[in-house]
Design a protein around this nucleic acid. Structure first.
Lengths: 93, 93
DNA sequence: TCGATAGTTTGATATTCTTCAAATTATCGA
DNA sequence: TCGATAATTTGAAGAATATCAAACTATCGA
């Protein structure tokens, strides 16, 4: 997962709030949407970006699309951030 | 420092590369600029965003503006990121 | 099979972002 | 004081982003 895409995904406050909600538990898109004053279409757009970044996963459950966090990509991102600021050990992001 | 501003600052690849350079040592703007195929004006714009986010500091040294990392904001940002993904403990970013 | 519910996709619009070239400010050295 | 060097600021242009409304797709329940 390119860290560019992950950082872009994290740069939007709505998307960070989505992640915060999903931290509690996996949730269908509609339940996430209740927390926002935004159309479902807009939320769907944000879900796509989070999915592309690998930050969330999505599984259909009957009528529902259930979203959940993917913590492994998060861990890689933390590592990348550490490299940006930690002592110089000649690495790339 | 609002985490919104910090995340936005980190979302651009040029700015992350600037941080990576400054990790080695404090550097005048011109020396940073040598690493890019971009005008100094554009770089100056990125420096401003990094300064606003508190990720770098800047000190005039004669003709030179010497930029350096500010690691304390980075540490706060890591903490915020941890909150996004770590177990739910009822916090905000 | 049909209507209702859940969610996505599309097309348009307004805003924000990145970049450049040119003008401007600040400091140094002679 | 003047010219050169270092960097910032300004104004403009093009690309990317967020959002909405409306159309569309998929599944459920009766």
């Amino acid at each position: 997962m390119s860290s560019q895409i992950v950082f872009k995904a994290l740069s939007d406050p709505t998307r960070r709030e989505i992640l915060r909600l999903l931290r509690k538990r996996p949730m269908p898109a509609g339940e996430v949407a209740e927390a926002f004053v935004m159309t479902k279409g807009s939320l769907s757009h944000h879900f796509n970006i989070l999915k592309q970044a690998g930050l969330v996963r999505c599984e259909r459950r009957g009528q529902f699309q259930v979203y959940s966090l993917n913590t492994s990509v998060f861990e890689q991102t933390m590592a990348t951030l550490m490299e940006l600021f930690g002592p110089d050990r000649r690495k790339r992001s």
